[in-house]
């Protein structure tokens, strides 16, 4: 496949430079690596260690005696299981909806729209990112309110607040994060490949299925990492439009702030972490991550 695509370097008659970076160049890595190890992995380590502590049930102060009881509670309490399943369901729902909305739009932007239209659409897609998360979530609260616009349009059949409202709101919030990578994936495919497919007698349906879809998949996979993990950790939208439902983030927040049980909250926060890791493993198994990196 790579052989078919002429690269800029070859056309200009230059060989791609493969010079090793000067030893000093490695200094560039110092700040990000320090950040990664101290701020990111360091805080994760603290979280992991504190998950093995317990709290004094009366004053709520942390007792530094090692116990695995917190992880036991996380695994055995039916509440945590139910909420985890619900949260994963919401995250998958959001991801699927965003993928279904993003693919046609990204395809249109990359292959159908003219340059002006493309810029206009790009602006339209990214503009909501400038508005505050809370403003957008509250806008949906207004839209979904009883006697609100959606209620009026549907003649009193608005879905109201609840889990479906949460899925819709989160889908709206994270949509740009799906559109952009899918658009990038489509845009990278040279138009000549579409023409070649057509020249070889493929209908547009076949081209879409056999050429476009496999090429767009890494973009969808990349976007889904954003939509899935952002939804998994979200606990604010559900408070605004979720009615009485609670997600994993709310339960963790409840344990940390309301119950003052930081160790159990720490143990609980490993649940979304494990789920995201599993999701990444699943994606890796499909081979898309390597393809994306290539």
């Amino acid at each position: 496949m790579t052989a078919l695509v002429p690269t800029e370097n070859l056309r200009a008659g230059r060989r791609p430079s493969r010079r090793r970076p000067a030893p000093l160049g490695y200094l560039l890595l110092l700040p990000p690596l320090a950040w990664l190890f101290i701020a990111y992995l360091g805080s994760m380590a603290v979280l992991l260690v504190s998950a093995f502590w317990s709290v004094d049930s009366f004053t709520g102060q942390v007792v530094r005696v090692t116990t695995t009881g917190n992880f036991g509670a996380v695994l055995h309490d039916p509440l945590f299981r139910t909420v985890t399943l619900r949260t994963v369901g919401v995250a998958l729902g959001v991801t699927v909806i965003d993928a279904l909305l993003a693919v046609p739009l990204a395809l249109f932007m990359a292959k159908v729209a003219g340059p002006r239209m493309r810029i206009a659409l790009m602006v339209a897609v990214t503009t909501p990112l400038w508005a505050s998360y809370l403003v957008k979530a509250y806008a949906w609260r207004g839209l979904l309110a009883p006697n609100g616009p959606l209620d009026w349009i549907t003649g009193g059949h608005s879905i109201g607040y609840g889990l479906p409202a949460t899925v819709i709101t989160l889908s709206y919030l994270w949509l740009p994060y799906m559109i952009l990578p899918v658009y990038a994936a489509f845009a990278r495919v040279p138009s000549s490949m579409w023409e070649a497919s057509a020249d070889l007698g493929a209908t547009s349906g076949t081209t879409l299925r056999r050429i476009a879809a496999p090429l767009a998949f890494p973009g969808i996979a990349a976007g889904s990492i954003f939509t899935f993990s952002l939804s998994l950790g979200d606990y604010i939208a559900v408070q605004i439009v979720g009615g009485k439902s609670q997600l994993l983030g709310n339960v963790i927040y409840g344990q940390l702030v309301t119950a003052n049980d930081q160790p159990l909250a720490a143990a609980l926060s490993f649940v979304p972490l494990v789920v995201v890791l599993l999701y990444l493993f699943a994606l890796r198994a499909t081979g898309t991550l390597e393809q994306e990196a290539r």
């Binding site: 004094d56 009881g69 036991g72 695994l75 159990l264 599993l278 198994a285």
Partner: peptide, 29 residues
């Protein structure tokens, strides 16, 4: 890869459930 991922998961689950059976009480007072 899939198999090794599944195996890894299995080990993790086992380890966690083994841990949890030893102590389930968190704190008294």
């Amino acid at each position: 890869r899939l198999k090794s991922a599944a195996a890894l998961l299995g080990v993790a689950t086992l380890a966690l459930s083994a841990c949890s059976s030893s102590t389930t009480t968190t704190s008294s007072g």
